[in-house]
Design a binder for these strands. Structure first.
Lengths: 345, 345
DNA sequence: GTTAGCACTCTGTGTCTGCGAGTGCTAAAT
DNA sequence: ATTTAGCACTCGCAGACACAGAGTGCTAAC
């Protein structure tokens, strides 16, 4: 168990390192008002803290920097959420002020605000498809062998895809198909569409249309494709202003990851509800071994809808970011609930 | 007028600098097989070329590098398109091999191939809306006051947008509106929709529906929004591997530009048909003052459809890139023509 | 007109130096 | 038994310096 003095010193070192990005020496700590003991004492304590694994030395005669374990302890025991400033609160609430038609607009806007407030990179994962349901399906013929499938979900999200058939399309058949599908599938969660289709719908369709098999194949393919979530970014390049990312090779590795939405959504999607903090190696992903990811979930009527995330260096302003994320995710939840009610009025 | 020898030397310097990214000295040129004269002679010629503005010196005792004017002369007079290698040709043709339903897939794929072949960043601007026409318009109610507008163009592109109305929606009215709009607007170029709507349609609509004004406003808004083109990127971070972009601040400036599709499409959209090369300041855009942009247009049945572009340092492999762009843009034109015929079969 | 020769210039690199910030240890002070 | 002052020691870093290498520009010879 750490003594009070050790806790004070550990906290002082993390705080100091987070703001200055430079190894912290015993003397600079002794200058603080809440520190009454001498540099020598601090050195002894620091030495102990290093032995316990909370601190590291970049080289033998430099100050100390927090280790991953140090940050973890700091986050778990040493910080209390900082109070948001007026500006921060009003920036977040400005998202609310804009009129919006689709959830996506809220999400894109949230990502922007989050990145500009924190000056890290923000990643917001959109309403997860497996939590949304089919509201409407449309098949619009655009040529004799092609049609556009349009899927509208109950979150107001619309996906479209062009498909083509081996044979000619029959307008009245298409209409029948659309009617059957809408009747049977409306309100079904997006993830269950494929199963539902093969178990219940295929038999019915068989009776009505000639191109039965290619139609089923096509629908399965469409449902399959639109399983993934959408990823929104804010301040993609913010991370470049952090001194730890002044190496172009490193930067490139990270930016390349942002181009792969699937990977990003895997890394940032949070399993648990609420706030999650993953520091360095805890991400189990080599390029992020000196990054921290903080995620928070937002929901609608208690249903998990998506994740807001922040990517920054392990040397992150934890208290502030945590407070902002907490506030924002709750605000988004509120916003969505209001939207949902307005929508169903 | 430059002498043959000056031309040979200028070409040698550009070629050499493009591959090695280091100032070129007189001795290294004299080693070339096609150079029969001594370093001293070359020095004299270089001195003249510098006076004429084709070359620059980074400092007094370094070799020479091409000036912007030097590159321009090189591009205009000294190069002949390089023959593509088998790999390059087959890479480009692999785009053709994939089955595709929407033009966007071709474009995205082209951007990828282009960036991987050149190792610069590629920007492809999608079918320009003002060249495409409305094929179909749909209004799908999703709640009592909201609907999704879906626009399908003759290029197979689909846009959607959620809209809401102050009052309740009447299903049969909506149907009428959709019918009228489709009848009157089908085949109209996307850019003319707004004009057409206010001049010809609004009177007709007036007769049929109650929420006349908000409907018109809504449609105008929708048509307005979908004027912009889509921008596709390939190898966004490729530019980081160029030695001239090893400064993080610089990199950030450029990457930030990529986040603004409107700006990018303004910078890369080519007015003229065919191949355009803009070197350095010729871009009239400070962050690109040491970049070259090469664009080529692709078309469908003679109609200008969009632009493929490459962004790299002024120190660019011009002959190779030009050949690739030329081949690719022609290939895309062919591909689109084939697609268009298949589509209308 | 061309080229060899040479002085000169500038950069990059390696070495040395001293400085400053920091540690760790020991011995004295509390 | 803590705490602290004192001091030797360790690095890293910036500046000074010399030196090699690459390159130029000029002059004089070919």
């Amino acid at each position: 168990m750490l003594t009070d003095r050790q806790l004070l010193i550990l906290k002082a070192i993390v705080d100091n390192y987070v703001t200055n990005a430079e190894p912290v020496g015993s003397r600079s700590i002794s200058k603080r008002d809440d520190v009454t003991f001498s540099p020598a004492t601090i050195r002894n304590e620091m030495s102990d803290l290093e032995e316990l694994g909370f601190l590291e030395k970049p080289h033998s005669s430099a100050g100390r920097i927090p280790s991953q374990k140090g940050y973890r302890y700091y986050v778990d025991h040493l910080i209390s959420p900082s109070k948001l400033t007026k500006n921060e609160v009003s920036d977040i609430q400005s998202i609310l002020a804009n009129r919006f038609d689709e959830i996506e607009q809220v999400i894109q806007e949230s990502a922007k605000v989050l990145s500009s407030l924190t000056s890290y990179t923000s990643i917001v994962i959109g309403p997860e498809v497996f939590e949304s349901r089919l509201r409407q399906l449309q098949l619009i013929p655009i040529s004799e062998t092609q049609a556009v499938v349009i899927i509208v979900t109950d979150t107001g999200h619309v996906e479209n895809q062009t498909v083509h058939f081996p044979g000619k399309l029959d307008g009245s058949e298409l209409e029948k198909v659309v009617n059957i599908l809408n009747e049977k599938l409306r309100g079904i969660p997006m993830v269950q569409l494929q199963e539902k289709l093969s178990l219940e719908i295929s038999n019915v369709l068989k009776k009505y249309i000639t191109q039965y098999e290619s139609m089923i194949d096509m629908l399965q393919d469409v449902f399959q494709r639109h399983q993934h979530e959408k990823v929104f970014y804010g301040g993609k390049t913010n991370i470049l202003s952090q001194p730890e990312f002044h190496d172009v090779e490193r930067v490139r590795n990270i930016l390349d990851i942002f181009e792969e939405d699937k990977l990003v959504s895997k890394l940032f999607r949070s399993a648990e509800n609420g706030l999650t903090i993953k520091i360095g190696e805890e991400n189990h992903f080599e390029p992020f071994s000196d990054c921290t990811i903080i995620t928070a979930t937002y929901s609608l009527d208690g249903k998990h809808m998506g994740t807001v995330g922040i990517l920054g260096p392990t040397r992150m302003e934890y208290p502030r970011v945590i407070s902002i994320m907490d506030y924002l995710s709750k605000d988004m939840t509120k916003l969505l609930t209001a939207w949902n009610h307005r929508k169903s009025e």
